[in-house]
């Protein structure tokens, strides 16, 4: 069972049945189920989520991307700071990045006010944090490789040579 092919498939559509995945991989359904379990047990596959176009949902969801600068000292490393930030349920994504700032955070909330409050009361006061810059998401055009919006109609002829 080629794990990379299975991962490719899962990343395209994780909701396919094991039988359908097996058919596409030319593999045995039992082998696919076992490989899947192994990927999960080994922590390679950490979860499965829906890609949502929030513009199509009535409920308002506010998202922000936050740049965070930190200053390390002899006792505190990136990992420790990261662990503290990651624990907040408001934080959806946390990455250490190269460039002008250190951490990149994605935050989700009900309102801009709520998110501003979260950043100013929970993130900015952390002793190592020296600066935060918050960018509210105004619109999204593509998420996880999927283009949002109305998409293109299939305007091919229904039967052609």
């Amino acid at each position: 069972m080629d794990k990379q092919s299975l991962l490719d498939l899962l990343r395209r559509d994780a909701r396919e049945s094991v039988d359908d995945m097996a058919r596409q991989l030319g593999a045995d359904a039992d082998a696919v189920a076992a490989a899947l379990e192994e990927l999960e047990d080994d922590g390679v596959v950490r979860g499965y989520q829906a890609v949502v176009d929030w513009n199509k949902v009535d409920e308002e969801v506010v998202r922000a991307q936050v740049e965070v600068d930190v200053e390390l000292d002899r006792d505190t490393g990136y990992d420790q700071i990261a662990r503290r930030i990651a624990r907040f349920p408001e934080v959806g994504t946390l990455r250490l990045v190269s460039g002008d700032y250190d951490f990149f955070i994605e935050v989700e909330g009900d309102s801009m006010q709520g998110i501003s409050k979260f950043i100013s009361e929970r993130i900015a006061p952390l002793p190592e944090v020296t600066k935060t810059v918050t960018h509210f998401v105004m619109d999204s055009y593509k998420e996880e490789g999927i283009e949002l919006g109305d998409g293109d109609d299939d305007d091919r002829l229904s039967v052609s040579p």
């Binding site: 091919r156 002829l157 229904s158 039967v159 052609s160 040579p161």
Partner: peptide
């Protein structure tokens, strides 16, 4: 003969086509 099938398919709604050569 493809043309004939094209015309038949065009008359119907909600067709899933596995007849496309592109």
């Amino acid at each position: 003969g493809i043309r004939r099938f094209f015309e038949l398919a065009e008359e119907m709604d909600d067709v899933i086509s596995l007849g496309v050569g592109e």
